[in-house]
Simulated assay, not measured.
Amino acid sequence: MIRRARLLCVVMTLLAGATGIISSTQTWLTVTLADGADHVLLVPGASAIPVLAPLSLAVLALGAALSIAGRFLRYAFGALSVAIAVILGTLTWQVAFDPQASHAASTVTEATGISGAAAVSALVGSIGASPWTVVTLGAWILLLAAGLLTLATAHRWTGSGRKYRTDAAAAAPSASRPHDAIDDWDDLSRGEDPTTRPLD
């Protein structure tokens, strides 16, 4: 059950991050300009929320690191996942259910050359959110659940395996075979003097 919890946390985190990255390139808002010609502009997620792409990349990195993290880092990554989920969830909620001209400001300015909050707001005739906003909001809810599950179960996760451990126990040679020259080199790399070892 604990192994499943760890795997579940990693998969949920990676899925949330991947969804955020994909969503950042998709249309989040459709803006109709009040310019007499009713021009329509499509606003991608990365423009509606500038921190969407970088924080989504951070979530992907968290998911990958969580799979090999020690106990202290598990808690740190869990707390960080919760914080990112709350931040991005709040921002995404605003775009999804209360889109404002400010969310499309960069796209409007790029298309028209008009800048300034008041000028952009006056130019925007209507604005509507796409289903991608709701899909991405679901991803942040998933990330929040992953972070909370990590905090609740991290103390019971098993170690990450010998190849990721740096303590003496992981580096020590197996008792089932004799000490050889390779083990002597390993001892030296840890700062130990192999000549002081008792003869077998």
Rank of each mutant, 00 (worst) to 15 (best):
I2H: 00
R4D: 12
R4A: 10
A5H: 15
L14Q: 04
A16R: 11
G17F: 00
A18I: 12
T19R: 03
I21Y: 00
I22R: 11
S24D: 05
S24C: 08
Q26T: 08
A37M: 02
D38I: 01
H39D: 07
L42K: 12
V43F: 02
A48Y: 00
I49Y: 03
V51Y: 11
V51E: 10
P54W: 05
P54N: 03
L57T: 11
A58E: 01
A58F: 13
V59F: 00
A65H: 04
L66G: 14
S67M: 11
S67N: 09
S67Y: 08
A69M: 09
A69C: 10
R71Y: 08
Y75C: 10
A76M: 14
A76Q: 10
A79S: 15
L80C: 00
V86P: 00
W93S: 15
W93N: 13
W93I: 12
F97L: 14
D98S: 04
E110S: 15
S115V: 08
G116Y: 02
A117G: 05
A119K: 04
A119F: 05
S121I: 05
A122F: 03
S130V: 09
P131Y: 06
P131T: 06
T133Q: 06
V134I: 11
V135S: 03
I141V: 07
A145F: 03
A146K: 04
G147F: 03
G147K: 08
T150S: 08
L151F: 06
L151A: 12
R156G: 13
G159L: 09
R162Y: 09
D167K: 13
A168L: 15
A169N: 12
A170G: 02
A170V: 11
A171Q: 13
A171I: 06
A175E: 13
H179L: 11
H179Q: 09
D180N: 14
A181V: 13
D183S: 09
W185P: 00
W185E: 05
T195C: 01
T195Y: 03
D200N: 14
